[in-house]
Design a protein around this nucleic acid. Structure first.
Lengths: 244, 244
DNA sequence: GTCTATAGTGCGATAGAC
DNA sequence: GTCTATCGCACTATAGAC
């Protein structure tokens, strides 16, 4: 069925990706601490970062079960092991906590996507990398992506606008690759906008319907391979060996 | 660009579909009233059905803006023009209201999908009908589909199970058509499960990212045509005139 | 830096007037 | 059949002890 060598290579690839991303998460919590020192009452960086990571992680966990609005700060206090008072040393309202988490996620996504895609590479390679990287990213940060999508409506106008823009960035990136490929004669794309929408939709399904794929024991590598195959069969010209 | 004749035909097709579905909605509110007469305190059918339609409609409207949990019954009272007391004549808790709406939607979807797809037709026709009908259905009932997806996590265990099952029904229906087509040699489908998942994902995108398509002025007919084209290019055998 | 105790608010739900 | 008035409760947010 599967080439064992390939599967192993893909697994290694994904594992190193996971490690890199999780490291970035702590870095970003440190950044958040430094930037928000004026409103965070804690002064010791080590303590603050440890608790921030804990707060964010616990919030995502509870919210993905029953939603951010339904989660009371008493729930968060109980699960995180921090008292109500301690929590309010890190943010000054429940809404601000929501904003902090949204910002943290957006930042890490941008950081990693732009690090991995090489705009000088051939379009077909860029497309494959974009699809695979996005799927790996949503796999590692699944709780954040799900949270971000489900709670977007609770954001205030300005923050909501940022979330929408961030969402469109990936799509425009993909559309750019498709257009580039079409110009170079490597892809046949009659409607780059709708094609990019479709790609975005199947990428999103991986984190919105995570339970479905878990239940069916589909790994992220298998899903990525299938999606790449699917998209390529649509955008690629019929091979020259046929109908030449 | 577009064939004018075709576009007009598609619009007529969609308009009649919309009328049929909206009629079904009132029918179903009547059904709900009759089945729940033991807990609904109102006795006059005409009054009860009018108010139920109002309550469901207003709840969907508010919830799709800020979520069902965030919506207070005071919000609902204000927007619907019914007092708190009057509202509680139609349901006995906020949770029950949620369940009633979920049930109403599930019922109408099943009713219409099974009415439109003819299992004796050729698989390629069935596939096209399934995709188009599902998209039209989610277009007409967009508020309900969005609500249903976003609020699923607030349901109790038993109701949640029903929601998940209902969600999988469409996917299994599509998978069945794909397998049938493969058996008859009309489709080439290496992985019917993942192919059906992809189709489901793009169908869902229409109601989950409705704002995106609205903004871009993509109509449901255009989207349906594109998706059908997309899927067919993946599952259809290369035509016999090529590589024969 | 973290805790407990509590103030103040707004919620879901109901009883009884009309 | 619908309304207004109100109860009890759980929530966010804070103040002050340790």
């Amino acid at each position: 069925m599967h080439n064992l060598q390939n599967t192993t290579a893909a697994e290694e690839d994904f594992d190193s990706f996971r490690k890199m991303t999780l490291l970035s998460m702590e870095e970003i919590c440190r950044d958040i601490f430094r930037e928000n020192q004026h409103r965070i009452k804690i002064k010791k960086e080590a303590v603050a970062v440890r608790n921030l990571v804990n707060i964010f992680h616990t919030t995502l966990q509870i919210s993905n079960e029953k939603g951010f609005q339904t989660m009371s700060l008493r729930d968060l206090s109980r699960s995180s092991g921090l008292s109500m008072g301690a929590l309010y040393s890190y943010f000054c309202s429940k809404d601000e906590l929501l904003e902090m988490i949204q910002n943290q996620g957006r930042r890490i996504i941008l950081k990693i996507l732009s690090r991995r895609i090489n705009p000088a590479a051939p379009p077909s390679e860029q497309l494959r990398t974009a699809i695979r990287t996005h799927l790996y990213l949503t796999e590692v940060l699944q709780p954040w992506f799900y949270f971000s999508y489900m709670e977007a409506k609770n954001l205030k106008k300005e923050q909501r606008k940022k979330a929408i823009e961030s969402d469109l960035v990936t799509e425009e990136l993909i559309m750019g690759i498709l257009k580039q490929g079409a110009e170079k004669g490597q892809f046949v794309v009659t409607n780059p906008m709708l094609t990019a929408s479709v790609i975005k939709a199947v990428l999103q399904d991986w984190y919105l319907k995570r339970w479905k794929y878990s239940r069916r024991q589909i790994s992220v590598q298998v899903y990525a391979d299938f999606i790449i195959h699917f998209i390529e069969s649509f955008v690629r010209k019929p091979s020259a060996s046929c109908c030449s």
